[in-house]
Design a protein around this nucleic acid. Sequence first.
DNA 1: AGAGATTATGTTGCATGCATCAGCTCGTCA
DNA 2: TGACGAGCTGATGCATGCAACATAATCTCT
Lengths: 228, 228
Amino acid sequence: MQQTFSTEQGLAVPVHDLPLLDRVRALILGGDFPPGAPVSEVFLSQEFDVSRTPIREALKQLQHEGLVEIRPKVGTFVREPTRREIVELFQLKESFEGLAAGLLARRGPVREIAVLERNLEESDEAAAAGDAERYAALVHEFHQTIILGADNNKLAEHYGRLMNQLAYHRLVLRTAGHPGRIIASTSEHRTVLEMIKDKDHFGAEAAMRNHVYASSREVLTDSRTRND
Amino acid sequence: MQQTFSTEQGLAVPVHDLPLLDRVRALILGGDFPPGAPVSEVFLSQEFDVSRTPIREALKQLQHEGLVEIRPKVGTFVREPTRREIVELFQLKESFEGLAAGLLARRGPVREIAVLERNLEESDEAAAAGDAERYAALVHEFHQTIILGADNNKLAEHYGRLMNQLAYHRLVLRTAGHPGRIIASTSEHRTVLEMIKDKDHFGAEAAMRNHVYASSREVLTDSRTRND
DNA sequence: AGAGATTATGTTGCATGCATCAGCTCGTCA
DNA sequence: TGACGAGCTGATGCATGCAACATAATCTCT
């Protein structure tokens, strides 16, 4: 198998061009480039002290990820998902995570169950301590554990791409640890875990889909989300 | 069957390099390159009378699609999915198409229903006439109509990538119009359509998933499918 | 003869230069 | 004044050259 490296979103990409790709991504997501802003190859090549060739390759990847739009013979521009795209992506996320939860439940895993149980304990602690950041990290870990535990590399791959696209929406990140969602979220996680422990793959899938749908509603009904 | 649907949709793949990308893909899939065979940039550049630069870009795309494997500083090699990957891809296919059928049922569309009804009529005709090729094309169209009718571009995008990867498995193509599946397949299609007409998105999703699963079993139990 | 070191080779990775093209500026003319 | 068009500018798209590296082949020494 090709040597891959899992980014924080779990996307498997070739290891050899990760540094530059990540740096370009980070630069664009850093906030200095508002949506629609041009991202010229020469600027990036000067910024990172490389030639245009590797920059071009990185931009093509980012285009594939949906972060930028390359208009031939014109230039590359930062692209932010519209609200409609966010809705579409969440529908996919619901489907992906539901599938993963179902597959995991069918496997009847031991290791993952222990990990998830420990995760819920720590989530309760973080919630009690009001540590929103740690809580968000644990939520992320919970979902990630289930995705990887589904034992389906292609699923993890597509899911990684999906999350990359979603991550570009800054508002999604901002509401990730929304206080109002914490109690419900942990409760839903617990339900999902119970279903997995019971090897009820049908119930696990349904529970996970409900959970993801509820989370997405939280983001999409947020007044700060633009309406385009 | 070419990936024309994705080009018409103007998806992630930029239009301007589709010709070269398609030609390279077609060349590799043509059969002259057995799995594991090296695909050097210079060879392709001479073959298509372009420089290595656009070839490199095309190969990167194909790597992303899973057709080739690029080993840094070594070379590019044809890559055929393993049986395990086929299983994984079919699990995803099931999930994608189920989601699409559900979304379409929820929309309660008029146009798609008419198209699908006509498709089933023609499928019956093709089956009666023993025209396996036409039947396979109609099956493809049936699924495609549902995917596009789901009105979710991101879904169509991911589905397109998925089908690209599946298409690389020559055996999948070979069993596409398997005679033993025809009657059952049409019957399952009809069930899916009925659910959509009833706006039963839950039932439509379940029916479609059952159908895709049954189709995948047909391929995966095929003795010709390698067991690696 | 065999094992390790060494050269040879073929490939990629990247830098650079030039042609091409989209979009804009500005001048011209009705 | 306003519209039209030729050039201008900046960017991409691609060709080419060179260096670096992985791998294979060869050589050397024991």
